[in-house]
């Protein structure tokens, strides 16, 4: 009989323990949710510095970009270290769908008009679908509208066109650190000298490290194999900061590229870091919501 009582007591105790532990975590009854956790905010904006980043403008949003590159720092105090001399690009860039953005811009340098698209092919994600990297496809066309230099017989519209195709492959390794590679192909319908090639293959590398929630340090380098560029042209190297202030992202940088379109900053850099022939510059990004994308 004693045995029965102790059995009952123990079983009652045990059952109350079981009930208690269930109540302590009721939500575990529902199990883990199946959810695709897409990686977001790999970069603060759609550019690393000059290179396009892993980020697209969100659907329904227009990103108005005002970018300046000043003269070279080694032009001295008389030119206020280059600030007297500014090259400007105004850009209007649109998020069309969650995967596609497109935009156009106009640069004062060479009076270039540029149009581009950027398409997300793979999105880095965790959870239900594990995808270690993001891959994007980028394409742009530049129309050089400056007064035609050189043989007037070659002054066709097609000879003013430049094309860039790029894959952007990258990964946000941690909350703070993102790295991307940008294998690029630039095609120029017309080059000015026989030493220059019509086709250029290059590899860009871009990274960012968060310094705090709102400030990141960014760097990029674009490697063009030496045999593809004539003497006097240099690979692009840029370092800068992104400062996000709510509605704006300010990107401040030092770069040896004056051009803000791909064909220029990949293959036409005359300035060099070696003699401080670098440019101070900034990009200001301001976003406007134009329409509401459909809720997913």
């Amino acid at each position: 009989m004693l045995r029965i009582f102790s059995l009952i007591t123990i079983s009652l105790l045990f059952s109350s323990v079981v009930i208690y532990s269930q109540d302590d975590d009721l939500l575990s009854l529902l199990g883990e949710e199946e959810h695709i956790d897409y990686t977001t905010a790999s970069f603060k904006t759609s550019r690393v510095i000059n290179l396009h980043s892993l980020e697209n403008t969100a659907p329904g949003v227009m990103d108005f970009k005002i970018s300046h590159r000043f003269g070279t720092i080694n032009s001295g105090i008389q030119n206020l270290f280059g600030l007297d001399n500014a090259s400007i690009r105004l850009g209007f860039e649109f998020g069309l769908t969650p995967h596609l953005m497109a935009g156009f811009g106009r640069s004062s340098l060479e009076k270039n008009f540029d149009g581009f698209f950027k398409l997300k092919l793979l999105r880095q994600s965790g959870g239900k679908r594990n995808m270690p990297i993001s891959v994007l496809l980028f394409g742009s066309t530049v129309i050089k509208t400056a007064t035609f230099q050189g043989n007037p017989d070659a002054n066709f519209f097609s000879n003013r066109l430049f094309y860039t195709s790029q894959l952007i492959i990258g990964r946000k390794f941690s909350e703070g650190f993102t790295l991307q590679l940008s294998p690029s192909y630039v095609h120029r319908n017309l080059v000015t000298t026989a030493q220059e090639r019509n086709d250029i293959f290059a590899l860009g590398i871009g990274l960012r490290q968060k310094l705090n929630k709102r400030i990141t340090i960014n760097a990029e380098y674009i490697y063009v194999p030496a045999d593809q560029l004539p003497a006097g042209l240099n690979n692009s190297l840029s370092i800068g900061f992104d400062i996000e202030t709510g509605g704006h992202v300010f990107q401040l940088q030092l770069t040896n590229s004056i051009s803000m379109v791909e064909k220029g900053f990949i293959a036409e850099n005359t300035a060099s870091w070696s003699n401080m022939g670098i440019h101070f510059g900034f990009n200001i990004a301001r976003v406007f919501t134009l329409w509401q994308p459909k809720k997913m």
């Binding site: 977001t40 905010a41 969100a58 659907p59 949003v61 998020g95 709510g246 509605g247 976003v287 919501t289």
Partner: peptide
């Protein structure tokens, strides 16, 4: 979208 990013980040 930007608010959503800032909310999370």
């Amino acid at each position: 979208a930007l608010m959503e990013e800032h909310f999370n980040e």
